[in-house]
Amino acid sequence: MPSVSMTVNGKAVTGEVEGRTLLVEFLRQNLNLTGTHVGCDTSQCGACVVHVNGKSVKSCTTLALQAEGAEVSTIEGMATNGDLHPIQAAFKEHHGLQCGFCTPGMVMSAADLLQQNQDPSETEVREWLEGNICRCTGYQNIVKAIQAASQEMKG
């Protein structure tokens, strides 16, 4: 089996994978980072979103080998020293999650949006989330949380 090396949440990791092993499988099974979820098999739901070299990607649609040498960050890497990232804190404050299953993908996706657009409008947030499905919240409080986080992060 080929071996793959990457940096995940700032830590260098190496593992043996099959050619067909997906990045999400590598994260969940090899590294036990189970915060990244799998909600579908057609690359639609966004539960699996992580960052690869600073950009949000669907880790269910990325081979582990494609991330060779990459900087990967996952939901487990968002909080620092036990303090929630402003996006995480805003999701809590605005009740942007219910069952929590879509949440890691939502947070990671939102983090990429706010890197690209520091002050997104409601429409921009909603359109950005087109690739993230939530069955619980009706999205309303997710949108509010992301907009609130953008204000917080602008300072």
């Binding site: 969940r28 189970t34 995480q88 999701f91 404050e93 999650l97």
Partner: peptide, 19 residues
């Protein structure tokens, strides 16, 4: 009241069956 369960879900520490 803000939810007790949120911290674990928001930090990837939820424990679903597949986890």
């Amino acid at each position: 009241v803000r939810r007790k369960e949120d911290n674990r879900f928001l930090t990837g520490k939820g424990r679903y069956t597949d986890d």
